[in-house]
């Protein structure tokens, strides 16, 4: 589990790279940290790995304090860094063998984990080749294998699928999902919003070191984009006239053959609304939620933070 309270980091030039970050990620959950370059994501991750000492606040990772139990924190965290950090003159096998020793794995366990991960990421045949000969995606996969090598309860992954081809990205996403189901606590820093949307249980948007928003995707959509919208489509032009709308429903837009409603409590109201439409003999073809993406949430949040207009 990861818990932070008012976690902050000030660098020498009095610049607060991270300012008052409070997060709580439980085992079996994935938190996606979103934000521009330089927003403070990497600094946050580095504090959670006990690489940087917080200037204010505190954090516990896998039950250990990041200041008092640094070695325990590092032993229980798997980190995928911004740069892959591979030793180019070592082979993939040697690289994982080295880090297996660093993390104190027994020889047999090292071999088992190494073989499993190389096999899983489809790199068994290139394992005896030097890392310098690998493609970008292969390097990223090997770096991820390093982070997973000691089977840590907490994973901090910075751009886990960057530079990967679609198949590899899928593999990595599947592995992350599998890790979540085996009760790992995971933080992903990413610019890939579709990936965050697909994987994350909760999302935090960071801007200039501060968490602007934190919650589940649905919560963020509701906070940033307002109540859910539903669209009713008709087989032909339909004049709704002065349609009597149930409480908590407002008409957001209309066209000749469609109506769009903003609904506060869809589960309670939707059956009533559908009934109201059909009772007016509306030629209803479909009634469904208007899809809203994380991208809209993110861009609108950023636009508001920067004080510029959000272009839909």
């Amino acid at each position: 589990m990861i818990e932070t309270n008012d976690l902050s980091k000030q660098f020498n030039n009095n610049f607060w790279a991270v300012d008052g970050v409070t997060l709580n990620v439980q085992p079996g959950q994935i938190l996606a940290l979103l934000g521009q370059n330089g927003a403070g994501k990497t600094t946050t991750v580095r504090m959670l790995t006990a690489l940087l000492r917080p200037s204010r606040g505190c954090a516990r990772v896998a039950g250990y304090d990041v200041v008092k139990n640094q070695k325990d924190v590092r032993s229980n965290v798997g980190v995928l860094t911004e740069q892959h950090g591979l030793y180019m003159r070592m082979t993939g096998d040697e690289y994982l063998e080295f880090f297996g020793k660093v993390y104190g794995l027994a020889p047999q366990a090292r071999k088992v984990r190494r073989d499993y991960l190389m096999q899983y990421f489809g790199m068994a045949d290139v394992a005896p080749r030097r890392c310098g000969e690998y493609s970008k995606g292969m390097k990223q996969k090997l770096a991820l294998a390093r982070a997973l090598l000691h089977d840590p309860p907490v994973l901090l992954l910075d751009e886990p699928t960057s530079a990967m081809d679609p198949e590899s990205s899928r593999l990595v996403r599947d592995e992350i999902a599998r890790l979540r189901s085996s009760q790992r606590t995971i933080i992903i820093c990413t610019h890939n919003l579709a990936e965050a949307e697909a994987l994350a249980d909760s999302i935090a948007i960071i801007y200039r070191g501060r968490v602007l928003l934190h919650g589940t995707l649905d919560e963020l959509k509701r906070i940033v984009l307002g109540p859910v919208e539903y669209e009713a489509k008709f087989a032909r032009d339909f004049d709704a006239g002065n349609l009597d709308l149930p409480p908590g429903v407002t008409l957001a837009a209309r066209s000749a053959n469609s109506l769009r409603f903003r609904i506060e409590a869809p589960q309670a109201v939707n059956p009533v609304l559908v009934h109201a439409l059909t009772s007016r003999s509306a030629p209803l073809v479909s009634f469904q939620e208007v899809p809203r993406k994380l991208e809209q949430v993110y861009l609108k949040t950023m636009a508001e933070a920067q004080g510029v207009a959000y272009a839909t």
Binding site: L51, R74, T81, Q83, Y103
Partner: peptide
């Protein structure tokens, strides 16, 4: 400079 030090520093090595 090559960025290889961060994984090492993130490890439990003293």
């Amino acid at each position: 400079e090559r960025g290889t030090i961060e994984p090492l520093l993130s490890s439990p090595l003293e």
